[in-house]
Amino acid sequence: MPATSTPPAFPYTEQDLARFRETQQLAYGCAEQVAAWIEPGVTERQATAKLRRCLVRAGVQDFFHVPFAWFGDRTAFRHFHTPLQFFAGNRKLQEGMPYVLDCAPVVDGYTADIGYGGKVGDNPVWDRLAQDLKVYRELILREVRARRPLNEVYAAVDAQIAAHGYDNRHRVYPGRVIGHQVTRTTARGPAGVNLFGFGVRTLQTLGRELISERLHGRSPLWADGRASRHAPTPGLWAVEPHIGFREVGIKFEELLVVTEDDAYWLDDDLPHVRRWTHTQEATA
């Protein structure tokens, strides 16, 4: 393994961060619009189509990956055997079901990658998971601020999942990743064209990153293996803890800003964070 070289400098200006924040807001805004519209009888495909339309109307030119929607026990990736099962299918939403929307729009090269969990009707298991998700957002930030190696942060998240009695569902993602680095896409491939669900420009950028980071003993993908045995690389990370209990899964996904000596969530004005503040106020 090559010696870990000095970490790169934080590559973004305040303006850049503002643009990333805008894109992320736009993505969560569209997810909330779909959530307000969604109802029993809607299929996963209809939900992703609606999400895509909404994003395009808002000015999105390309996608880091195609929009996803998972309903019912598919939110916990139960019975997933092939990566093809990630794609939206004909599953119909029913009363009481949880759902997850996941999209990654790109505007002028600024990428967002978000995950939105919801439910229709009554689901006490979902309520509990949604509440507990807060612990993971705080834990990850604390650990990254302490500049703990990324694989150890991953293990700390795993330990928390075990203590809660849930299971780790992000390990079902290709590469078991809990997150990945996000950069400004500058690639020239055709926008809007995708391969295996990932935009062609994404693949170009990701490929280049994978190679150059690998040379520095780092990985743009954040998992529990040796490749993640390095301190958090300055830049932007899309972090997506995904937890499940029985037939219910939930996640959030948002950008974490890692500077040379600190870290913070790019934006706190997001649906799941607002939900926690509401319940806190309600129970206070």
């Binding site: 006490p124 298991v125 509990r128 203590a163 809660h164 009695g165 209990f245 029985r246």
Partner: peptide, 10 residues
């Protein structure tokens, strides 16, 4: 206590 809570969820 956490286990009891999970049981109550069912």
């Amino acid at each position: 206590e956490r286990t009891a809570e999970l049981c109550m969820l069912t």
